[in-house]
Amino acid sequence: MSPSATHTHDEHALVAHHFENLEQQRGANLLGMWLFLSSEVLFFGGIFTAYAMMRFSSTNNGFALGSSQLNAVVGGINTAVLLTSSLTMALAVWAAQTKHRRLLQLFLSLTLAFGLAFLVFKGFEWYHEYEVSLVPGPTFGSKLAEKGDGTVIPAETVKTMQMFFVFYFSITGLHALHMVVGLAVLAVQLVLCLQSDFGVRDYGPIEVFGLYWHFVDVVWIYVFPLLYLMRA
């Protein structure tokens, strides 16, 4: 299509035909991602609202008791892992902007590694919860007595605890799903970066994906205190 005067020669190959120039294309992509993320805020917001209301209206300490079944230190370490992947992602965007191809490859690989590490950690946590009968269902809480100090938890409270774990598994599950999607896109971008000058030629795609990755991190930043730290 007829290139407008604003196109430089290099730019032309990067700009889709319906955009005037690279600036417009980048702006549109970023805006699109931000709108998608604001949509995601409401997606997680829906389940957070449900959680808040059930917690608010519950008449026993089942939610706090459920929360104290989780290991805050393990959760904290996992939070740190995810924050680290966010840092490396931010550095990857920086590397793309400053056209350091090697560094871009390195930081993307590190992001991928830390992201995977988070999921592995999370998997072990889930497995542990399965082992101590904290998965909602007919057998929920059957092993609670073995672990505690011998006091019997009332049936109503166990029911509320189960409610807590319904939220726990739904929220962490949805978060993990977002991680998996993110890791898949990240893997594709990494392969492209290893094979070509993708990313340093135009940092736009890396920057847009970075937003998504940081958002998934932000969701966890809230998931962590909401699920792990509210024990009173």
Partner: peptide, 17 residues
């Protein structure tokens, strides 16, 4: 559409679960 629909999505997921 952007700010309302995701809430329906998560609600339906909860019903499905």
């Amino acid at each position: 559409q952007i700010l309302g629909t995701p809430v329906l999505a998560v609600t339906i997921l909860l019903v499905a679960a």
